[in-house]
């Protein structure tokens, strides 16, 4: 057993190849001690290919190894992927945000992972490469295999980057979270939304809610409801109702009752969507 710090992608892939599946990729490692027993570890947090935020053919390319702190502080993400900046800003505590990466947040596959909720709303695609060197792309929501279980195979695959369409003219996103404490707290419900407006009509929309299923969940009916609509006061009540009606949630002793969570799903979905619309309208005016 060993702990290896990979300095390059090539080196990391080589280790994965040699270990033939008996190894675990880690980045920030903040959840390492919650999972036992520990296998051999490859620390990829210094691999240049998973770091940094840049533009790539009109898309925002965000490294999977970008920490929550970096994402929250990034001027580009703040202005062109607001939901993600907002989500990253609220995770755990400063210490956890300094270590924990966006990629880790996704691969760890916790059902209420804030960054992942925002990424799904932003329509993010993940870019992965496996030990044999072949790469693939997948939508973030398609990478969830179950509760706390990811299709990203940490023993043979490395999550490299996320590709997100930047919010331009008429577009807006927002993230909302309802937690019992202002820090060091998991959310009872979190929600993120993205909209694209054309002449005040919602032309494209994604509303995401968690924790509902293993993966952040698109509110398909709610999206249908508002698509093609001109958002006004009359619609928000319906959004709230539809959002709460189209999901199945569970209550838990530690968080809240099932009933209350249904209620929060509605409220948070409405608030996230409304905020995203406001931002889109602002961008339209500019």
């Amino acid at each position: 057993m060993s702990y290896m710090v990979a300095a390059s992608l090539e080196q990391a892939l080589k280790i994965l190849h040699e270990k033939g599946g008996n190894v675990q990729v880690i980045a920030g490692g903040t959840d390492l001690y919650l999972k036992k027993p520990l296998p051999d570890l490859v620390d990829v947090s210094s691999v240049p290919e998973i770091l940094g935020i840049c533009r790539d053919e009109g898309m925002l390319s965000i490294g999977a190894g970008v920490t929550h702190t970096e994402a929250a502080a990034s001027a580009v993400i703040q202005s062109e992927a607001e939901a993600l900046a907002e989500a990253c800003r609220r995770v755990g505590s400063p210490q956890v945000r300094n270590m924990g990466t966006i990629g880790g947040n996704l691969v760890n596959a916790a059902p209420a992972a804030d960054a992942a909720v925002a990424l799904v709303a932003l329509g993010a695609k993940a870019l992965l490469v496996n030990h044999a060197g072949s790469s693939r792309e997948a939508f973030v929501e398609d990478l969830y295999a179950g509760y706390n279980c990811s299709y990203v195979d940490g023993s043979s695959e490395i999550l490299l980057r996320f590709l997100v369409e930047p919010c331009g003219q008429g577009m807006g996103s927002a993230f909302m979270r309802f937690a019992p404490r202002e820090a060091l707290s998991l959310p009872l419900v979190n929600s993120a939304a993205f909209v694209r407006l054309r002449e005040n009509i919602i032309e494209e929309v994604r509303v995401v809610i968690a924790p509902v299923k293993p993966a952040p969940t698109r509110l398909v009916e709610t999206e249908k409801l508002v698509l093609g609509c001109k958002p006004g006061e009359d619609i928000w009540r319906k959004v709230e109702y539809t959002a709460a009606s189209e999901v199945e949630v569970r209550g838990s002793l530690l968080r809240c009752s099932e009933e209350y969570r249904y209620h929060l799903v509605g409220v948070l979905a409405r608030r996230a969507l409304k905020k995203a619309v406001e931002r889109a309208l602002n961008r339209q005016r500019r």
Binding site: P180, R181, E182, A183, L184, S185
Partner: peptide, 8 residues
């Protein structure tokens, strides 16, 4: 078991 943080 949530005790108040500095932000609460």
């Amino acid at each position: 078991y949530r005790v108040p943080t500095a932000m609460d």
